[in-house]
Amino acid sequence: MARTIIVASFAAIMLMCFAVQKVEADEIILNNGNHLIGTITALSGEYFTLTSDYAEPIKIKKGSISKIFTENPVELHLASGEIIKGKIRTGDDGRIIVEEGNGRITSGIDLKSVTAVNPPPSEKWHGNVNLSGNLQTGNTDRSGLSFGADAMRRGDQDRFSMRFLYNIANENHTMTTRNIFGALQYDYFFTKKFYGYLAVELLNDTFKNLDLRAVVGPGAGYQVWDDPIKALSLEAGIAYFSENYKVQEDKSWLTIRLAANYRYKLTDWLVFTDRLVLYPSLKSMSDFSLRNEAALLTAIGSGWSMKLADILDYSNNPPAGTKSTDSLLTIGLQYGF
């Protein structure tokens, strides 16, 4: 009986030890030799997130990591646009090795080239709404208000985006500015970088006597970068450009469309963005229009940011009685979702 109890106890202890050994956990070894155990749940910017049952989630700077191991497969997004899924470990040369399963192994990955780990599902809308204004009193009474919204949905092979901007201003109790701008674009990715697009841009401007400017056309684009730190896309295509005026003869023509969309995260709390669209006429390259939207965003927490923006609208052949350049500088609040 005693022997049976001893054997049973020994077996129970062995089972407990085996169970402890089989607890799945990821491991990060820092440059200073410290070992961190938990589950790697994300990589955002330069920081990995490690969660555990014994502490709050820990953010670990990518550059401070010497070695990394995962027990469960993770999804790695690389700066090249490639996506790899599998268990990861650090090789003898300090580079990442991914065990993808079925005997497949990808090796030689630099940790610096990893831009995201287990990112949230991309098939969701995200974007922002913003409200800006200005007020001046004294010798001149001037006030202005701008409202805008951006939204985007990115899938595995396509991307849909829309933008809206409304501006109004008064000076000495007389309206001096009122315009509405809207844009829609659909992108289909043939590869991780190369895509085709169809874009529509609309503008109504009361003080340019412009009932409607419509620009519609297809083209191709190349996504140079797209990660949490930076993004850059370049586009070129053909577009139908038409302008309907209140008192002048309407005009329409074919044009080239050249565009660039840029974003760069300068610090954890400061982001610069710029959208440039150029329309040179097919008849004469010196006859062109452009629109540039530049902004500087300062994060203030909980999705809110201060936004300083400048919108430049230029035409070298404006309607009679109007100037070539319109520039609007605004400061206000933006909420991201």
Rank of each mutant, 00 (worst) to 15 (best):
P318H: 03
R163M: 12
Y186K: 05
A199Q: 09
T4G: 12
K62F: 02
P319V: 12
N261W: 04
I5M: 00
Q136L: 15
A79R: 11
K85V: 15
R89C: 10
P319D: 12
I84H: 12
K251S: 14
L165P: 00
A11S: 08
N139E: 04
W304G: 07
I28A: 00
L131D: 02
K193R: 15
T176K: 02
T41K: 07
I37R: 10
R213A: 07
S113N: 15
K307M: 11
E243R: 00
H173Y: 04
G321E: 07
E24K: 06
S324C: 02
H77Y: 14
H173R: 02
I88E: 02
S252K: 01
K59V: 13
L30P: 06
I29T: 15
D156N: 15
P218F: 05
Y245C: 01
V98T: 01
P280R: 06
S284N: 13
I6Q: 13
T267Q: 03
G101T: 10
L234Y: 02
S286Q: 15
E235Y: 05
I168M: 01
Y335V: 03
D227I: 08
G103I: 03
F189A: 11
S252L: 01
F69I: 11
F69G: 09
R89W: 08
Q334C: 00
A183G: 15
A2Q: 06
S305A: 05
D187K: 13
M306P: 06
N292I: 04
K22M: 10
K59F: 09
V114T: 11
A55F: 13
E75C: 06
G38K: 08
F194Y: 14
D310Y: 05
S284Y: 05
K59E: 10
E100C: 14
R178A: 03
G303S: 07
G91D: 15
I109C: 09
A8W: 13
D274Y: 08
R213P: 07
E46P: 00
G138A: 12
D53T: 12
Y245K: 02
Y195P: 01
S143R: 07
D93I: 09
V74P: 06
K61W: 15
R159Q: 08
N118G: 04
L76E: 01
T191G: 04
V224A: 06
D156H: 14
L290N: 15
I37Q: 08
A236R: 00
A149I: 03
D53M: 07
K251R: 14
E24I: 01
M306C: 06
L15V: 04
G133L: 00
R95D: 12
L210F: 09
K62W: 02
A11H: 09
I97H: 10
I60S: 04
E171I: 02
T140I: 14
I58K: 12
A220D: 00
G196N: 03
T4V: 14
G94D: 09
K265T: 09
G38Q: 05
A295P: 01
S281Y: 05
S305I: 03
L234I: 02
G182I: 13
F337R: 07
L50Q: 03
